[in-house]
Design a protein around this nucleic acid. Structure first.
Length: 526
RNA sequence: GCGCCCGUAGCUCAGCUGGAUAGAGCGUCUGGCUAUGAACCAGAAGGCCGGGAGUUCGAAUCUCUCCGGGCGCACCA
């Protein structure tokens, strides 16, 4: 990038400008309202957490964790950091020579602090630094006091201290489920009656190749149900809520797919069966699918390659390999969806990439999004709470809506054109208050305040303009009315109101003005 | 991460096989317009042709590379 000092947004991120931002507000507001009616409450989460949280929840082997997170080492603090500073400040070889033995306790102290910090998880290290630390231990343990080896060892240690990253390892969240579960555990929410129902909305971060509807800072609206029950009715209600939300935002062509991917009991057996079957067919598969035989056989089912489709069709299906509990659960979820009148398609090839999913999985696709056509994905994750250190009996299910894609799809359907609603009135102000002369400005300021208090959107010119200019600006700002306040009106104790659409104009007192504008607003909202 | 395509005023685009001070429409600003906007008329501002390097007498145009974007793959909510 070299636009000569001009700043521009980082690759893969973007600004959401008016009037598009009005649509965002409308969508998020719809979420708050719909989720609220289902008894969900908002949780506001930090956008960064310990890297380890995501690694554990999402799965250390997934691309998300291994290469798509924005990860950084925080600056160290406390005694460890102070000790580190004093070691780094140890002068060079020649100066040290005279009294090097005196530094030994400093290193030992640092080593002890470091070990403790690692143990407590306050310092996280990768393989590379682990090697350094091991070497550090080794040298320190076997350090001998003979010259000049001692000095060399000392300076080597100093260098290690300088380069070992000792801050906490943090990451911008790539998704929010892990954070919700962390918060659930941290705040002891298992003592709350029934299941805890939470929703969230906000930015997530993934260092992916940008594409339409796929940004490095992207937004999600999601909800989770956590608690002791895994009743299929919960799965169905969560999906019902989701569909109610899409209905509320008037998303057309939303299509629901569901599947069950089994549990800890039955899935591994199925995966092995699938792997064995794929192994026999290896020669007929593409390179990617061949690789997945080892890494994640389930994802072969997702393949879009034309020539693999016939092969995939004949593979064993999980629905026929579920244990009796999972099978019953899945059946009941479908029945419960039926009770709610929710149309769905079973998609036996719908698998989830993240480790924590089990049993029910679902996905909603929308139109107008190209190959990135999923706007929402979700599923059950009964083992996750335990995996993150909570009660083993806690169950969970949730979903996340890709807000960027939802907005994109709504825009394709023309939603951007009609931003109504008082908050997101992109159509311009109700009133453009054109004043002329110092006395009129005084009156206009007061009138503007009263109009705004009554909820009207008022544009008040900050400086005096020529008459024609002022009305011209009113027009270009798409104001609905121009209220004209000059010496004539001031003297008569009225204002002139002009409806810009048809040019009709009348003189009104302030009380009449308010009732006139209210009537106009009511007419406009129909 | 891989492959293909794209990058000229704020926006949408023109610019012939390399040729002189790079154009248009829309938008913005100013004036025609001393109490009436949209229409119309006149004018102005706004570009190192995404950046850099190279080929050439000469590059917006050809080559390389970097940056940014789009589409598909991979991965994934």
């Amino acid at each position: 990038m070299s636009d000569r000092g001009k700043f521009q947004a980082i690759k893969g991120v973007r600004d959401i400008l008016p009037p598009e931002s009005a649509l965002w507000n409308r969508v998020e507001q719809a979420g708050r309202e719909v989720f609220g009616t289902f008894g969900f409450a908002e949780i506001r989460l930090p956008i960064f957490e310990h890297t380890e949280l995501f690694a554990r929840a999402v799965g250390g082997e997934t691309d998300i964790v291994s290469k798509e997170m924005y990860t950084f080492v925080d600056r160290p603090s406390g005694e460890l950091a102070i000790q580190r500073e004093s070691i780094i400040e140890i002068p060079g070889f020649a100066a040290v020579k005279a009294k090097s033995e005196g530094y030994r306790p400093d290193f030992q102290r640092y080593q002890a602090l470091l070990r403790k910090a690692i143990e407590l998880g306050e310092v996280s290290v990768d393989q590379n630094t682990e090697r350094q630390i091991a070497l550090f231990d080794e040298i320190l343990d076997s350090m001998n006091a003979t010259e000049p080896a001692f000095h060399i060892q000392l300076l080597t240690l100093r260098e290690f201290v300088r380069t070992i990253p000792i801050g906490e390892n943090l990451s911008l969240r790539p998704e929010a489920t892990a954070s919700v579960v962390r918060a659930y555990i941290q705040h002891g929410m298992q003592v709350q009656p029934g299941n805890v129902k939470l929703y969230y909305m906000g930015p997530m971060f993934r260092r992916e190749r940008p594409q339409k509807g796929r940004y490095r800072q992207f937004y999600q609206i999601g909800a989770e149900v956590l608690g002791p029950s895994d009743a299929p009715g919960i799965d169905a209600e969560v999906i019902e809520m989701l569909m109610a939300f899409f209905d509320r935002v008037k998303l057309k062509g939303a299509s629901l797919s569901i599947n069950s991917i089994g549990c800890k009991q039955c899935r591994p057996a199925y995966v092995e069966k699938l792997r064995a079957e794929l192994e026999k067919l290896r020669e007929q598969l593409g390179a990617d699918s061949q690789r997945r035989i080892e890494t994640n056989p389930l994802r072969v089912l997702d393949s879009k390659l034309e020539h693999e489709q016939a092969i995939i069709e004949k593979l064993p299906r999980i629905a026929e390999n579920l244990c009796s509990e999972c099978s019953a659960h899945y059946g009941e979820v479908k029945r419960q969806l039926g009770l709610r009148g929710i149309a769905y398609q079973e998609n036996w090839r719908l698998v989830r990439g993240l480790d924590y999913y089990m049993r029910t999985t679902f996905e909603i696709t929308a139109t107008g999004l190209g190959s990135q056509n999923a706007v929402c994905g979700g599923g059950r994750y009964d083992g996750l709470v335990e995996m993150l250190g909570g009660q083993a009996t806690t169950k969970g299910i949730g979903f996340a809506i890709g807000t960027d894609r939802l907005i994109l799809s709504l825009q394709e359907q023309g939603a951007g054109e009609t931003p109504g609603g008082a908050a997101g009135r992109a159509g311009g102000p109700d009133v453009y208050l054109a004043w002329f002369g110092a006395a009129a400005q005084t009156a206009a300021i007061g009138l503007a305040r009263r109009l705004r208090e009554a909820g009207f959107v008022v544009e008040l010119p900050a400086a005096e303009m020529k008459f024609g200019k002022s009305l011209g600006l009113a027009d270009r700002l798409k104001a609905r009315h121009a209220v004209i306040l000059g010496d004539n009106e001031l003297a008569a104790g009225v204002v002139a109101v002009k409806r810009l659409a048809d040019g009709s104009q009348q003189k009104l007192g302030e009380l009449e003005l308010f009732s006139y504008l209210r009537a106009e607003r009511a007419a406009g909202e129909e």
